[in-house]
């Protein structure tokens, strides 16, 4: 009796709530750390990025309008979905050669990070907004608003934790995200997409692409509908992103990929990260009769 032939999974990108191949039809080979073929991963093109931005634009207004409480519940649901498949996700991370223990540690850190942000949705406004005591007969208050669509560029290392750390502060406040996964270890992002799909996160709020960073950076840099770029990239890419950002006065928040970033640190999460991806709006109104 011959062994059962297993069904291999075709990795697909999670865009607009659907699982897609690259419109270009291109793929790249993903090998495990031993150099053995694992799967063909979509090699996304600039048009895939464009389509993902369109999907995010569709989802954005609805997501931003959700109540803070509801966003918090949904983010918590995302954590639940990952927690329930910890082993799968750890396996995805182990493709990159880390030990089981290290992989588990990263998955758990990612889940904890998501739970951390789930608790921020209905609190950051109280910290970042303000009622301003102006010296005239006006009521004056500042509230934050999401910027819109945020482009995320994940670094190669920590393919899950870094990605999640970059995405979460953006969506906590109602932004949508188009993210490019780790180039060397895209598979955790593929799995993350599958987990997001069964969470209550509306399709299009987070869009995950796989591919070559160098190829995608110019489009991330210049796409004017992206209102901010958040990521960890090398010096050359930082410059390219900032040059592109200048064309539409895009907000840019970048870490240096060439330096070690301690993604597990508490300093990598919280209010400051949320603040970097919101706009402040101040409203004046007379107090009269």
């Amino acid at each position: 009796m011959s062994a059962r032939l297993t069904i291999t999974k075709t990795p697909k990108c999670y865009v607009g709530g659907a699982f897609i191949r690259s419109e270009s039809g291109r793929v790249f080979e993903l090998k495990d750390h031993k150099g053995e073929f694992f799967a063909n991963v979509p090699l996304c093109s600039r048009k895939d990025l464009r389509n993902a931005v369109e999907a995010a634009a569709k989802a954005g207004p609805g997501w931003a309008k959700r109540t803070a409480f509801n966003r918090g519940q949904i983010l918590y649901r995302v954590a639940e979905m990952i927690e329930s498949r910890v082993e799968d996700m750890a396996g995805a991370l182990m493709l990159g050669g880390v030990t089981k223990a290290a992989a588990m540690k990263e998955v758990v850190a990612a889940v904890e990070r998501i739970v951390h942000y789930a608790g921020w949705t209905d609190k950051y406004e109280a910290m970042l907004g303000s009622v301003n005591p102006v010296a005239s007969a006006h009521f004056n208050f500042t509230v934050t608003e999401p910027m819109g669509i945020i482009g995320v560029l994940a670094p190669d290392e920590r393919p899950l934790l870094a990605l999640v750390s970059l995405i979460l502060p953006a969506i906590t406040s109602g932004n949508c995200v188009v993210a490019l996964a780790s180039e060397t270890q895209p598979y955790p992002a593929i799995l993350l997409g599958e987990m997001l799909a069964v969470s209550d996160l509306p399709g299009g709020v987070v869009n995950l692409l796989t591919g070559k960073r160098a190829e995608m950076v110019p489009t991330f840099a210049t796409h004017e509908h992206l209102r901010a770029i958040s990521g960890a990239v090398n010096a050359e890419q930082r410059k390219a992103l900032r040059l592109g950002a200048a064309e539409s006065v895009k907000r840019v928040r970048l870490w240096k990929a060439e330096e070690a970033v301690d993604w597990e640190s508490d300093a990598m999460e919280g209010l400051e990260e949320i603040r970097a991806l919101v706009e402040c709006k101040t409203t004046w109104h007379p107090v009269g009769g």
Binding site: V134, T282, T283
Partner: peptide, 25 residues
């Protein structure tokens, strides 16, 4: 970044001022 309702061009040191999009950050 600033919305003036039933008033306009009001400024105050306590009141944050600045723009969205190509009006800066």
């Amino acid at each position: 970044g600033v919305v003036w309702a039933n008033t306009y061009n009001k400024f105050d040191p306590a009141s944050p001022f600045g723009g969205y999009k190509e009006s800066g950050f």
